[in-house]
Design a protein around this nucleic acid. Structure first.
Lengths: 336, 336
DNA sequence: GCAAATAACGGAAACGTTTCCGTAAAAAAT
DNA sequence: ATTTTTTACGGAAACGTTTCCGTTATTTGC
C-alpha cells in the first residue's frame, strides 16, 4: 500500500532511481528542470523517504536519545523541553528513556543503543556507580555522548552542569544571613558528581562563617517513608533552625514533617532547596530556592551534542559548560 | 568498526547468514546445538541487530511515538511514565514529540511518521481544530493510533479518557455543598473534547441544584497574562464565592490573583480544579483537586496500542476506555 | 577542428536483515 | 528396498536508500 518510494517516482517521471535520489538531495549533478519536476511530484504525492532505508545506507538515523532518572519532576521536564526545542529545529527525533534511578536499566538501555539506533545520546546518570564501561563503549563506537546535570567526572565527554558548589555556598550564606545558628544539610542519595559539590559548598560556607558552626549532615535514601522518618527524628533531636535540602524532593518532605511536628516555617526553621518547582511561590509558605536554568541546560546540552554529531568528531575538545543557578528568596527563609 | 553483524557471526561459526538469523530468532528449523553456539557467540560479542536493517526488511521498528501538547506538567509527565513502563516491558522505544499546543506542529510531525518510522502512535490532541486529515491518513496507512485525554470524538479509534462529565458534576456539587452561592467556571482554551464535557458537568450540576444559580463562565486563552487579567476583572466585578478551574494552570493563576486582591481562600472564595499537581497538598492553602489517574491513563493507552500493533488489526472494535478521577478534598474548599 | 573538460544522467553495488525457495542427508513410511 | 517425509541448513532475493562508476552529449580550451 505504501508504494510511494523513489522507485515509483522514477518510473512515473521516466527517470532513473539515482537521478531522483540526487534531485531530492539537491545535487549539483541534476539540472534545474529535472529537480523541479521531481520536487513537484514528490510534494504532490507527499513522498517521505523511508527512514530505515536511509538509515541503513547512510548510518544515520536523525534520532537522538535522552536518558534521565525520572520524569515526574519539573527539572527534568524543563530539560526535555529545552532539548526538544533544538531537536525540532534540527529536524531530529527524540527517544526518551527513564531509568528510575536504576543503574542496571541505564546499562541495558545504553547497550541497546550502541548498534546505531541513534546518532547521539544525552545522559543524566542514574546512580553514581563506579561502573561506566557501558558508556565507554559508546565512545569506542563513536557515538557522541553529552552529559548534563549528573555527569561522569572521570570521563572525557562534554558536560553541562550548573555552578553547584557556588550555589551551595550562596544558599548556606543566605541561611546564615537569615540568622540560622544550626543548619542541617539533607544529602541526596547516591549521586556523587553533583552531590559532593553541593555538600562541599555547604561545608566550606560553614567553615568560613563567623560562628563556625559544626556541620549537620543527614544522609537520605531513595525511599520516601524512610526519608520522612529520618528527617522527623533529626528535627526532633537536633532541633536545627535551618535546613538546606540538596534536592527538591527532600524539601517537600520537610514541609510535611514540619506540619506534623507543629514546627512553623520560617519562624522555627527556615528552609532552602535546590528546586525547579513551578509552584514554589505558591507553597505554604513559599519556598526559597536555588533554581537551575533547566531549560537552558537542555538547550545547551543538545547544541553540544549536535556539534559532535555534525562534525563527526567525538573526541577532541571535551568542554565543561557551567551555567549559573539563581537564588530566589521567598518566605521559607524570611526573617519575619 | 561496527563489524559485529550477522555476516560476521556466520563467518566466525562457519554457518550461513540465514542459519544464524534463524537461530537468533529461535526458529524451529535450527538444531538446538547450533542455536546454542550462535547464542553463545552473539552474547560474547554483544551482538545487537541493526534496527534499520530489520525495520527495512520487516516493516517493524520496535518504536512508538507519543505526541503531547506540553511536558512541563505533572499530568503529562505521569502519563509518559505510565506509557514508558509498558514500552519498556515490551522492549520498545518511545519517541516523544511536544506540539506546544500548536496544531500545525502536530500535523507536520504526524506527516513525518506516516512512512514507517514507528509502529504506532499515542496522541493527545493539541488544539481541537476541525482538521484531522493527517490523522485519517494514519488509519489509511494502517498505523495504529490511540487517543488519550484529548481525543478526537469523530474518529473511530481507541480513546482513553477519564469521566470528565461526572467529575465535573461532583466538583460542582462539592462547591455547592460547601455553601457556594455563585460559582464561576474557568474554561480552558480551545479543546472541545474534554472542555465541553467538563463544562456540561458544571452546567448540569448547577441546573439540578436547589438554588438554581445561573452559570458564570469565564473563557480563558493560552496567554498567561491575559488570563490573569480576565480572572482579576471577573473576581472584582462578579465576586463569585467559588471557582471551578477546568485546568490546573488556571487554578494557579487564581492563587496569585487572590493574593493580589487580598481575597482569602477559602473564606472569601473557594477553589477547586482538575489537577495532577504533586504539590497540591503543600499549596497555600492546599488545593482541592479532581485528580485524574494519569499514570493509569498512560498504562492503559499503551496497552491498547500494543494490542493493535500485535494483532495488526487497526480497525474493528474501537473501544472507549473511561477511567475514574478522584475528588481530593483539601483546604481550598473547606468550610472552616 | 580536435582533445579535454563538463554537465546530466543511468546501472548497479552496498547497507544488514528476514524469508522464500531449494536441497542434501537422515528418518519414517510403505 | 524404494518412496516419502522430516530435519537442518545454504543461496539469494527483497526492503528503499545513497553513492560509486560509468557513459553519452555538449561545451570549452587551444
Amino acid at each position: 500500500m505504501n508504494k510511494i518510494n523513489i522507485k515509483y517516482l522514477a518510473k512515473e517521471l521516466n527517470l532513473s532511481i539515482s537521478t531522483v535520489s540526487r534531485a531530492l538531495s539537491d545535487s549539483y549533478e541534476i539540472s534545474a528542470e529535472t529537480k523541479a519536476k521531481v520536487f513537484a511530484l514528490a510534494r504532490q504525492l507527499n513522498y517521505q523517504p523511508n527512514p530505515n532505508a536511509s538509515g541503513l545506507r547512510g548510518q544515520k538515523t536523525k534520532t537522538i536519545a535522552i536518558v534521565i532518572p525520572e520524569i515526574v519532576n519539573d527539572f527534568f521536564s524543563l530539560v526535555i523541553s529545552g532539548i526538544e526545542k533544538i531537536t525540532q529545529e534540527k529536524g531530529y527525533y527524540m527517544l526518551v528513556y527513564i531509568t528510575h534511578e536504576d543503574h542496571s536499566m541505564e546499562v541495558s538501555f545504553i547497550n541497546s543503543l550502541v548498534k546505531g539506533r541513534v546518532d547521539g545520546i544525552l545522559l543524566s546518570r542514574s546512580s553514581e556507580q563506579d561502573d561506566y564501561s557501558h558508556l565507554l563503549e559508546l565512545n569506542d563506537k563513536g557515538i557522541p555522548l553529552v552529559f548534563f546535570d549528573r555527569v561522569c567526572e572521570t570521563m572525557d565527554n562534554v558536560k553541562v552542569t550548573t555552578d553547584n558548589y557556588e550555589s551551595s555556598v550562596t544558599a548556606t550564606q543566605h541561611l546564615l544571613a537569615a540568622g540560622c545558628r544550626k543548619i542541617a544539610y539533607l544529602q541526596a542519595p547516591r549521586n556523587i558528581s553533583i552531590g559532593q559539590l553541593r555538600m562541599n559548598g555547604y561545608l566550606d560556607a560553614l567553615k568560613d562563617s563567623p560562628g563556625k558552626q559544626p556541620p549537620l549532615v543527614l544522609e537520605c535514601t531513595n525511599d520516601h517513608d524512610e526519608n520522612s522518618m529520618r528527617i522527623k527524628k533529626m528535627l526532633a533531636t537536633e532541633k536545627p533552625d535551618g535546613i538546606f535540602a540538596s534536592i527538591e524532593k527532600l524539601a517537600v518532605i520537610c514541609y510535611s514533617v514540619c506540619e506534623q511536628l507543629k514546627l512553623r516555617i520560617p519562624e522555627d526553621v527556615k528552609i532552602i532547596s535546590f528546586s525547579n518547582l513551578q509552584t514554589a511561590s505558591l507553597l505554604n509558605p513559599s519556598l526559597t530556592t536555588i533554581t537551575q536554568p533547566a531549560f537552558d541546560i537542555g538547550v545547551t546540552a543538545a547544541r553540544e551534542l549536535f556539534k559532535r554529531i555534525e562534525k563527526k568528531s567525538t573526541g577532541g575538545t571535551a568542554e565543561h559548560v557551567v551555567l549559573k543557578s539563581l537564588l530566589v528568596k521567598r518566605k521559607s527563609t524570611s526573617t519575619r
